[in-house]
Simulated assay, not measured.
Amino acid sequence: MAILVTGGLGYIGSHTVVELLNSNYEVVIVDDLSNSEKFILKNIEEITGKKPVFYPFDLKRRELLTQVFDAHTIDGCINFAASKAVGESQLKPVDYYENNLFTLINILQEFKERGISNFIFSSSCTVYGQADQMPIDENTPLKMPESVYGKTKQMGEEILIDFAKAYHRKIALLRYFNPIGAHPSAKIGELPIGIPNNLVPYVMQTAAGVREKLSIWGDDYPTEDGTAVRDYIYVVDLAKAHVAALRKLMEDESNVATIDIFNLGTGKGSSVLEVVKAFETANDVKVPYQICDRREGDITIAYANADKAQRELQWKSETSLEEALRTVWEWQKYLGNRNA
């Protein structure tokens, strides 16, 4: 029983591969290494004692993807292959549409031609745009996202829903809130290429002296301390939700279209400044920062109602913000020692 994990050496992908291997799934990774590093493959093996199959392929090249499907009996796919930086997506919209949508369509073509089902899509709370009410549940109306990145996620969902209905396949759309943290082993974690676009790796690098100051994008939002509020979920908790969703799809033996949608978050919002202070407290370090103008594409506030996932997947986030941020610092120390 082989599960294809695209983008499987990336941040969320690598943690999900670990949980899949620990649950005795055979894993086939396809990752073009555009936003990941090859050493993660070795570290996954060290954590699990198992070596996944790995192809360093660009999924935009359909002929390479076909080789993977010819070589393995694929029973399902968890698709993480996407560019994900909100700010960068505004500057490179065509690149984002090409990378995030063409790769998805190529995988679905293989699924269609080979009669494969069980597809899990790495989506995002950005599909809700700036929701009118909090917390956000799965019935919250979708709005046009503020960023090109968010638009690609919303389009990806629409493509998958049409695919499931037309070909009677089973899909799950997992709408993440803000993943943070690293594996307890400190051997895999978020590894941004260049200047980080997400808050927590920027905090991590600033605390380590890699960056001079953290840039906080706006302190004039209508929130308690003026900074944007998000729902920060520990990446290992998030990874376990993928295994639970996959299991649910594969246990459904009916021959009808299944479209599962789940919010994955903690149910609690934290502001940017609260995250900075929690990081300082958890790790006894200081994080110098500066306030900058708001960043195009960002929304004010978003946090989840994840009751549906708890009810239908028997899953919930269990790790505190402080504990998740402690693992971030352990990961940074591992990287520092590795690069020394």
Results as ranks from 00 to 15, higher is better:
residue 3 I to P: 10
residue 6 T to F: 11
residue 10 G to L: 08
residue 14 S to F: 11
residue 19 E to R: 12
residue 21 L to Q: 07
residue 25 Y to H: 14
residue 26 E to L: 11
residue 27 V to G: 04
residue 27 V to M: 10
residue 28 V to H: 02
residue 32 D to S: 10
residue 33 L to W: 01
residue 37 E to H: 14
residue 41 L to S: 03
residue 43 N to G: 02
residue 47 I to R: 03
residue 49 G to P: 12
residue 49 G to W: 09
residue 51 K to W: 05
residue 53 V to K: 13
residue 54 F to R: 01
residue 54 F to L: 02
residue 55 Y to N: 02
residue 60 K to E: 14
residue 61 R to Y: 09
residue 62 R to K: 15
residue 69 F to R: 12
residue 70 D to G: 11
residue 72 H to C: 03
residue 75 D to T: 15
residue 76 G to H: 09
residue 79 N to W: 07
residue 80 F to P: 04
residue 94 V to H: 08
residue 96 Y to T: 00
residue 99 N to Y: 12
residue 99 N to I: 10
residue 103 T to H: 01
residue 106 N to F: 10
residue 107 I to K: 05
residue 112 K to C: 00
residue 112 K to Q: 13
residue 115 G to Y: 09
residue 117 S to A: 06
residue 118 N to S: 07
residue 122 S to E: 04
residue 127 V to C: 02
residue 129 G to Y: 04
residue 135 P to Q: 11
residue 136 I to S: 01
residue 140 T to S: 10
residue 141 P to I: 09
residue 143 K to A: 13
residue 144 M to D: 06
residue 145 P to Q: 00
residue 150 G to V: 06
residue 151 K to P: 00
residue 154 Q to R: 10
residue 154 Q to H: 03
residue 156 G to R: 15
residue 157 E to G: 09
residue 162 D to Y: 14
residue 163 F to M: 13
residue 163 F to L: 11
residue 165 K to H: 08
residue 167 Y to D: 11
residue 171 I to H: 07
residue 174 L to H: 02
residue 176 Y to N: 07
residue 177 F to S: 11
residue 177 F to Q: 04
residue 192 P to Q: 07
residue 192 P to L: 12
residue 195 I to E: 14
residue 204 M to I: 03
residue 204 M to F: 03
residue 205 Q to H: 08
residue 206 T to W: 04
residue 206 T to M: 09
residue 207 A to W: 04
residue 211 R to Q: 11
residue 211 R to Y: 13
residue 215 S to A: 12
residue 218 G to P: 02
residue 219 D to I: 11
residue 221 Y to P: 07
residue 223 T to Q: 00
residue 228 A to Q: 15
residue 229 V to R: 05
residue 229 V to T: 02
residue 234 Y to I: 03
residue 238 L to N: 01
residue 241 A to Y: 05
residue 242 H to M: 14
residue 245 A to C: 08
residue 251 E to W: 08
residue 251 E to I: 08
residue 254 S to I: 10
residue 258 T to L: 12
residue 259 I to W: 03
residue 260 D to A: 12
residue 267 G to T: 02
residue 267 G to Y: 05
residue 268 K to Y: 12
residue 274 E to D: 13
residue 276 V to A: 00
residue 276 V to Y: 02
residue 277 K to A: 14
residue 278 A to M: 13
residue 281 T to P: 00
residue 286 K to A: 12
residue 287 V to A: 01
residue 287 V to I: 07
residue 290 Q to R: 13
residue 297 G to W: 03
residue 299 I to N: 09
residue 303 Y to N: 03
residue 311 R to G: 01
residue 311 R to W: 11
residue 314 Q to F: 15
residue 315 W to M: 09
residue 325 L to S: 04
residue 331 W to N: 06
residue 334 Y to H: 15
residue 337 N to K: 15
residue 338 R to T: 04
residue 340 A to L: 14
residue 340 A to Y: 10
